[in-house]
Amino acid sequence: MSSLNIGEISSLDRKREQATSTSHAIEIEVNGQPHKLEVEAREILLDTLRERLGFTGVKKSCDHGQCGACTVLLNGRRVNACLLLSVMADGDEVTTIEGLASENGDLHLVQQAFLIHDAFQCGYCTSGQIISTVGMLGEPWSNDSASLRESMSGNLCRCGAYRNIHTAVEEAKSSHQQREASTEEDFS
């Protein structure tokens, strides 16, 4: 070791990388648009979304599945994009914060609830909080306050804006249910 200088070590590392990595052609649909790209086996979905496809609304924070800032919907379910290889998502559909509003600019009801209740301070965790809430609406959580708090425990807010986040989540849940109920009436 002592006979090698730093430059030599990093050149060894590079050789090793070339020798042991695989490259894969993948196709993923992000917010309804298909994307074909070549990824290295170790490329993380979070990095592909941010660095290569420009979806910088997805945030990188802890990078270990502990904070929820990178939450996206994968085939409609909320997941941590930092713990997924891009190649694992080949053929999947991803929704990021950029894909929530409708084409004419109308915000998603969760986005509206966060705005109305000022459910953020610095805003860095917000896109993860909002996507996570959207995912939560598709899961069988009950309406009580404790259950809703539990349902959002995968999203940390370092500013501690939880009070307003919680209010926004409660409102999103109830407006979602009202909307579902009225849709059912329309069909009955």
Partner: peptide, 12 residues
């Protein structure tokens, strides 16, 4: 199961 990890992690 519901006491472990977070909803995002449990989905994966």
């Amino acid at each position: 199961l519901l006491s472990g990890a977070s909803p995002q992690l449990r989905n994966r």
